[in-house]
Design a protein around this nucleic acid. Structure first.
Lengths: 373, 373
DNA sequence: CTGAAAGCGCTTACAG
DNA sequence: CTGAAAGCGCTTACAG
């Protein structure tokens, strides 16, 4: 039954996907078209690949016949023959230290690479330092120097990314976004979070478990909030939920903490918790909920419901302890995996991806977090 | 750049997966082994496929060399040549009427079929009537008559399924479980819910939003609860959460409603709600939460937190209205899709799947339900 | 402008 | 017991 009946024969293809390449039953071949058109297969091939040098009349006849027969090439045979190589490059922030968030995106890329590396394509990952303003420019030049066939980009530095994208568009290099997107560019596809809607989910989770007379604090921990679009979207979504529900609720207070060092977080939270004894919940729009969690734990305020984003180790640790109640996650690894797949489909099969693909807003608690690793 | 540069050339392969079939760079070929071993490729092939008729000494030399070179066959070339056809059969409950739950499993199969049908394999779906005791036996005979290469089974009728599985084991036909599993069988793999843990998630969600002094009712709507293992597991998990948390909480009351007609549900709920004015939440272990929702709505008791399972239309409708607070979902379509993939991997590449694969316990609310369709 | 041929890596009869 | 050859459906020089 099985093809590989010897243990010596370690299959070269790590996935099941090769089966997709099995030949279709009775699918028309180039040969069949050639036969019907009364020409050789070489001529058919020239027509199908626009290699020119074919009489107009012959060309039209062949195209008509191919259309009638619903010809589509056997990609398996094609791949067997072809020596084509594709080079992709992913450009995203460095995942060290404070930026652990970006580690999961790397995982998705690694996962994709594991599947694709054995084949005629390569994926180079280049990361830039978020805290060095000119590093993005530097690294984007490195990317261009590689003359890639396609690019995966996390465009969190809006201005610089836009410049880069314009260059790519000029050079005809297709690019896909993950994590966030910039509307004013010619990106092929975005794969990621629906930030506004995820804010609404956060609001709903807090609303459900927080007494109606309590106030809720929205904490934005970001160096440059105005330029961090998705945090704004999350906040807007969060607030919209309470507007829509029309319930008589305690107030929602929005806080912005530019310097996210812990001492500064303590300072700000201390002040607001002291001046307002009625705070029942905190929503942290970024992945830094663990800083607020640390504060709540140290100040014995675990009565406050805390909801945040992203499965960073420190967040998960507080989630398991019960200090963080919910984490909202956006499937970072799946984002990059899908991006790789989309570029392949586009480059190899001219398959146009969905332009905006929102992945599910996952609600993660201490009881189901185990499934997200 | 793209292979298909003509719109006439509709690619035969609906997915990107064909790229997995691109040839590996510098991978050793049968030819290379033959060269090193000083024999012809025919002999190498005979050794690798155990077709016998090879001198012991030659055989050993070839195996040694193949091992040294880390030979693995180019499945693309193999598939191109091979005319092998695989027949899979899925056996699961009919999705009509009350059993809408099973419709999503069908979706997953349909999805898989859409990808696989163009190739040398087929997938037949056979459904049985849950309410006719002998229908499973009948349909399982139909399945056997098809002489399938692999089987996907939802073994909810424990006794009958076990009989069937024993037959399959006897005939050497591999089978995978989805939705639930039977321990005492030689199944290849289970893909589905961790029922116990999902019960804990349900408990946690209720615990978070229900005042501590309130009682909680667990409703088991099942004809034959003792034989419906996963409902028991969910209940056990649910109760365990409160035991573990050690909190001083209102009571948890377990209800069993064998006849799930609405009038009967009303009767039972009416009785308990009247005798106990302190009920704050209801956990429905099956997919029939909509019946309880209807009751709560009709009796103006939407103050009661209701948590149930599965994204049936009627459940989702009550979720959107806010009558059901959370639905726990177990990715039914993904279950069957993965099952198909596992069988292919096993049959074509001798790849042994993970025996127990638990899919994530998804927490679905009115605000994130849109992503689950 | 067109056809014939070689070859991708494998499988499968067939001949010795 | 072993080798030589044809062919899966395509691509790619090369010859006319």
């Amino acid at each position: 039954m099985a093809f590989c009946d010897k243990s010596e024969c370690e299959c070269r293809f790590s996935d099941s996907f090769f089966i997709f390449c099995m030949s279709q039953v009775n699918a028309p071949r180039i040969k069949d078209i050639a036969l019907k058109a009364g020409v050789s297969i070489g001529t058919v091939d020239r027509v199908l690949h626009n290699r020119g040098e074919v009489a107009r009349e012959t060309r039209e006849r062949i195209l008509r016949i191919a259309g009638e027969m619903h010809y589509s090439p056997n990609l398996m045979a094609r791949a067997l023959k072809s020596k084509k190589k594709l080079q992709l490059v992913a450009l995203l922030p460095d995942a060290s230290g404070e930026n652990e968030f970006w580690a999961r995106h790397r995982n998705g890329l690694d996962e994709a690479m594991k599947s694709f590396e054995p084949f005629n394509l390569s994926l180079e990952v280049i990361s830039f330092d978020l805290h060095q303003d000119d590093d993005f420019l530097l690294k984007s030049e490195t990317v261009l120097a590689l003359h890639p066939d396609g690019i995966l980009l996390a465009p969190i530095l809006k201005y610089q990314s836009q410049q880069f994208c314009d260059k790519l568009t000029g050079q005809g290099i297709p690019y896909v976004f993950f994590d966030s997107f910039i509307d004013e560019t010619a990106f092929l596809s975005y794969t990621g979070e629906d930030a506004y809607q995820s804010g609404r989910v956060g609001a709903q989770l807090i609303d459900y478990g927080t007494p109606v007379d309590k106030d809720i604090v929205v904490v934005n921990l970001a160096r440059d909030l105005a330029n961090t679009l998705h945090l704004n979207d999350r906040t807007q979504g969060f607030l919209s939920y309470f507007v829509d529900s029309g319930m008589n609720r305690g107030r929602q207070l929005c806080l912005e903490i530019k310097n996210s060092e812990y001492s500064r977080v303590v300072e700000v939270l201390d002040e607001i918790m002291t001046s307002n004894g009625n705070i029942g919940a905190i929503f942290v729009t970024s992945s830094k909920a663990h800083k607020v969690a640390r504060f709540l734990e140290q100040h014995g305020r675990t009565d406050v419901v805390l909801v945040g984003y992203d499965l960073l180790d420190r967040n998960v640790s507080y989630l398991r302890q019960g200090v963080i109640r919910f984490l909202i996650s956006q499937r970072p690894a799946e984002q990059t995996e899908r991006c790789v797949r989309k570029l392949f489909d586009y480059l190899l099969s001219d398959k146009q991806p969905v332009r905006m693909e929102y992945l599910p807003v996952d609600v993660v608690t201490s009881e189901n977090v185990r499934y997200f690793f």
